[in-house]
Design a protein around this nucleic acid. Structure first.
Lengths: 154, 154
DNA sequence: TATTTACTCTATTGATTTAATAGTCTAAAT
DNA sequence: ATTTAGACTATTAAATCAATAGAGTAAATA
């Protein structure tokens, strides 16, 4: 389950990705207000994302946050891992944060792990294959297309 | 993330699915001991699974739990939903337990939802497509196959 | 039918995590 | 020097998770 933290973080990043001038910092206050996110909570989230290299910040007047890379280069998988931790449903099925189960006798033949590894792989494929730019493009498509175009007719 | 509850539940179900005589009840005590699950906690889990139609029970001497259907007919998706709730990473992306976001202005064009729906679909496809019997078969394959057979050679 | 066995049910507890808030500190601009 | 705005640490309230406790009920059998 995606936490509020991750949801807020993604919303903030998408807001930044939508800015026409990607060089110009956006105030935390603006992000908080526009995206309806508790400001103090958002500060922590943005700081976290900054410390993991996804955001840059400028202090003082005219300061704020901006993406540290192009929206095409920021994958949702990275964001989710930073804010919510590993993607795998079980630590023993994680690629980036593997931790063995202590009860597990033989991990190679643990059925639950085998299936959860499939789930991890499928999820990671989607999240690591989707950038902020991809999300914006999909949103654009969804709002441009008339509803009928999305429906199958018999 | 899969909870201990779901993990314990799956382990217990797989234990039952491995029984040669599927008609003969297995004691909670045996399940708890063999699968190293706190007995009292396991009681709650099994009861829950029973109330959702996945298990049957017999009281008194010679009693215990048994699967209420064949191992081929019990899908992991059902088990996980009973013990951990909806599979979707967000309530607004759930098929079986949809709840709209209150902040969301236009759900049809919410990018986060679009992606999380993909994640849900991919996860549900795996979990709803895998039965207890499938898991046992995979475990069997994994433990029978020599290690080399699983490795690609250049 | 008394007794034992074993599941049923409700309540409670402690630990952890989550979401949010408070307040002080530091850097940058004017 | 002053204002602006992010940086950082600590704390708190609520929710969830994992586990435990104990009394109750149904079924078998001696």
């Amino acid at each position: 389950m995606l936490s509020m933290k991750a949801k807020y973080g993604l919303r903030a990043l998408l807001y930044l990705a939508r800015q026409q001038n990607q060089e110009e910092p956006v105030l935390i206050s603006e992000l908080a207000e526009k995206e309806k996110i508790p400001k103090k909570f958002l500060e922590l989230i943005l700081l976290d994302l900054k410390n993991h290299g996804l955001l840059q910040s400028k202090k003082g007047k005219g300061g704020g946050y901006l993406l540290s890379r192009r929206p095409e280069a920021i994958k949702l998988g990275r964001v989710v891992r930073v804010l919510d931790g590993p993607i795998a449903p079980l630590p023993c099925a994680s690629q980036t944060a593997y931790i063995p189960c202590d009860e597990c006798e033989d991990e190679k033949t643990c059925g639950i792990r085998l299936v959860m590894k499939d789930v991890r792989d499928a999820t990671a494929k989607i999240l690591d294959g989707t950038s902020l730019a991809d999300v914006l493009r999909r949103v654009e498509e969804a709002s441009t297309q008339p509803a009928e175009a999305l429906t199958y007719h018999i």
